[in-house]
């Protein structure tokens, strides 16, 4: 696997280290945490499809095979990958959607109405979710990676 996802996760960690209670920086941190996990999934798919860990032309093409929406749905319909990847992916995707596009102070509307803002502890929680999910990805053996690739890429036929 290439290291793009680890580099992106380090960006999230660096932002959290310096953010304190800076809302804008916390938003960028959780957005980076989401992209780190997405890129980790892209790397697994690229490695499994191209049968290569180096950046060949096939690897590059396969790295771009994933669609964000299909990723979320496929992982959460998978008995094998739902808990360790599907749940954190969906939660990180939603927090990224809030971080990048919403003007409300908290990702949950009801909590926002109490006047609470998204804080450092909550941002760190999402960073840890991404970190644990990436650790899980890095520990998959070849057979598990192949099953994950099929889960993510191959559409069900009715």
């Amino acid at each position: 696997m290439t290291d793009l996802h680890r580099d992106t996760l380090r960006v999230a960690e660096t932002l959290l280290t310096f953010a304190k209670e800076d809302g804008f920086v916390l938003r960028r941190a959780v957005s980076s945490a989401y992209y780190a996990l997405f890129q980790g999934l892209c790397a697994v798919v690229a490695e499994s499809m191209s049968r290569s860990t180096s950046v060949t032309s096939e690897y590059r093409r396969a790295f771009r095979a994933l669609d964000h929406r299909q990723c979320r749905n496929s992982l959460n319909q998978s008995a094998e990958f739902k808990n360790d990847l599907g749940v954190p992916f969906a939660e990180l995707q939603d927090i990224r959607q809030w971080a990048d596009y919403s003007v409300t102070p908290h990702p949950d509307d009801l909590i926002a109405r109490t006047g609470a803002s998204f804080n450092h502890g909550q941002a760190h929680f999402y960073y840890r979710k991404a970190h644990i999910a990436i650790y899980y990805l890095d520990g998959l053996d070849l057979a598990q990676k192949a099953r994950l690739m099929v889960t993510l890429v191959v559409k069900e036929r009715s």
Partner: peptide, 17 residues
Amino acid sequence: DIEARNRLSGALLTALQ
């Protein structure tokens, strides 16, 4: 902890499905 929360959310997804 986070892993237990993921397991519970996964169980909720399964129940909803």
